[in-house]
Every structure is written in structure tokens, then in C-alpha cells.
Amino acid sequence: MQETSTETTSGVTLIDQIRSRIISGELAPGELIPETALAEEFHVSRTPVREAFKVLQMEGLVHIRPRVGTYVHEPTRREIVEMFQIKESLEGLAASLLARRGAVPELEVLQRNIDESDAAAAAGDAARYAELVGEFHWTLVRGADNDKLTETYAWLMNQLAYDRLVNSTVADPKRLTASDREHHRVLEAIRDKDPYGAEMAMRDHVHASSRAALHRIFGDAGPRPAPGDPATGTTTDHTEEK
């Protein structure tokens, strides 16, 4: 039996496997992660499983309770709000940087993504649309051509378990349609080489997404509406009441 390595026979590490299950929602927030079952599944001792848990705890994905077990971290409302605030800033910056770059390959990838997203939205295919959402956001971030931004964004997306949140929010047809329109506005500003407009469009999109996510999780209205939110006509700022 493999005693110390956290790499599985397929070359994928235990850390990657467990992280993926948490982010996808296969392991739900608050769920006890079965240490012995994982060791048996991947044909390793419990030692590498525990080492993987330590790494994932540093990433904020699990919480180790001595003599009790390891649980998937269940973020508080405040934590989710704060992570979305950072996401809003990072993606707003990414959109602004991409708008400054001119005609780069990422623009055509984004356009194809939006074309496919339109089709998924028209068909009411929430699962496919959720996949395209992830592609859209990651293409935009990578298109900013800023390695430190990309690294920080990857860490944040893991903590936020964003794929799970997207699948939940776009299950609402109204949110799916609104999200699709928001993506159009972001790309239009980027193509117009309007850094400020692109940043504001992206910030408003992420803010709207955060409101939808908080409503799905906690049943509240989420953060206050963004400036000029067409759904409310409000002119409040982005400040979150905590």
C-alpha cells in the first residue's frame, strides 16, 4: 500500500480529487469527508489522505476537527459576501485590462461562448449554460494577461466553490436570461475598447450574480442592488450591509 504519496494511479493527486469533489458539490458544505473510504478508494494509507486534508484546510476548503473528523468548510454569509466583493474587483480589473489589449484571440473565444450561451438560454439548458459561464469568466481573466491576477482568481474560485453556485443560480430561468444579457454588455464594452465601461459592466454582472447566490443560499435579497440595476432602478452603491 502506498504510504506517503498523494498521487493516484492516474497521476492526479488526492488533493486534486478531493478539491474537485468539494468545488463541484459532490461533497457538500458541512459534510464529513470519509477518510477511511478515500484511503480504500485510492489504495493508499490514511497518512496521505490526512496530508491532503492539511493542504485543503490551508486553502480554506475543509475544517479539521481533532479526534472528530474532517468536514467540508461551510462558509458564512459574510465570507461569501466578502469573496464576491473580491471577485467583483478582480473580474472588473480583468475586463478593463482586456479592453486595453485590442484585437486578441480571447475576443473571438468570448464571442463563440456568447453565441453558444444564447442558444443554451433559448433552449432553457441551464446545465450547458452553467458550463459556458465558467468558460466566459476564465477566458476573460486569462485574457487580461496578468499572471498574478490569474493566480489570485484561481484561489478565490476554489474557496467560493463557484461552479456549484452557478449551477444553483442559473436554475432560475430569469437569472439565466439576465446573466446572458450581462455577458453581452461586457463583451460589447471590451470590443469598443472602453476599459471603464467594461469594468463597470463586469462589476455589475458579478454583483447581480452575488445577489442571486445569496438569495439561493440564505433566502435573503443579498447585497444591495448595483448602481442603475435595471431590475430595480436603484442608484445605491455597492456597499454591503454586514
Rank of each mutant, 00 (worst) to 15 (best):
R77I: 00
P230D: 02
H137P: 00
V12I: 11
L61S: 11
T234L: 09
L156P: 07
T232Y: 11
E3K: 14
R142I: 09
P75I: 13
D220R: 12
E188V: 04
E116P: 04
R185S: 11
P105A: 05
D147T: 11
P34C: 02
A123E: 05
L32A: 12
E41Y: 09
A198K: 02
L110C: 04
D147K: 15
T4A: 11
V186N: 01
M58F: 15
L93G: 04
S89C: 09
P223E: 00
L132G: 02
G197E: 01
S5P: 03
M83A: 15
R78Y: 00
R185V: 04
T8W: 12
V104M: 13
A208Q: 04
F84G: 04
R101T: 03
L98F: 06
K87T: 00
D172H: 06
V186L: 11
V55K: 12
Y196I: 14
A201W: 02
E3L: 12
M58H: 13
L14H: 02
G25L: 06
R112M: 10
G233Q: 12
R128F: 08
T76M: 05
A189I: 01
D118P: 01
E26I: 14
T150I: 14
E26M: 13
E41I: 07
L149G: 04
A119H: 08
M58V: 07
A103M: 11
M1W: 10
S96I: 02
F53R: 08
H183F: 10
R21V: 04
Q17H: 12
N113P: 01
I86M: 12
